[in-house]
Amino acid sequence: MSALDIAKLLRRVGRITETDTAASPSDYTPPAALAGSVQVRHVDCGSCNGCEIELAGAFGPVYDAERYGARLVASPRHADVLAVTGAPTRNLAEPLRRSVEAAPRPRVVLAIGDCAAGEGAYAQGYAVVGGVADIVPVDLVVRGCPPPPDAIVAALRQVTGK
């Protein structure tokens, strides 16, 4: 694809992002230090990759979580929010604990999907410990199997407050 073709494509596509919806009211009070700016580290501790696709969608051009001040980062050291997906397996319980410990305070643990909430298709499996809450303290839960991207964006907006 030549540069000219890309330029034409950019022109034709224009703005992809869906229009802004009002933030849903909630009783969750996020740490004040995180207002307006939240770096998210995704931690997969045994997911089927369904939630991964939806999480990628939440940060893609259509849902654009970045407009609310949330951004994906490459290291838990840079993160304020740990977005945990999947049914935590025995092997990944300790790495999850360490990932959360590696994030500087104040930090928020966001459990994404029914598996992370302790239910769903793989609950009570022999390799599954339980929910994310059985391993690390969880602040927010997004339900769904998998949860739609706008539900993930809504949860992130509760943290950024935008």
Partner: peptide
């Protein structure tokens, strides 16, 4: 970059908000 990719973008002030927040956090 965000506008050209079809996104809304975080706004011009976002890097400043990011740095302000990071400077307030304790390093590990």
């Amino acid at each position: 970059r965000a506008r050209l990719e079809g996104r809304v973008g975080a706004g011009v002030g976002q890097p400043w908000r990011d740095v302000r927040k990071l400077l307030a956090k304790e390093p590990l």
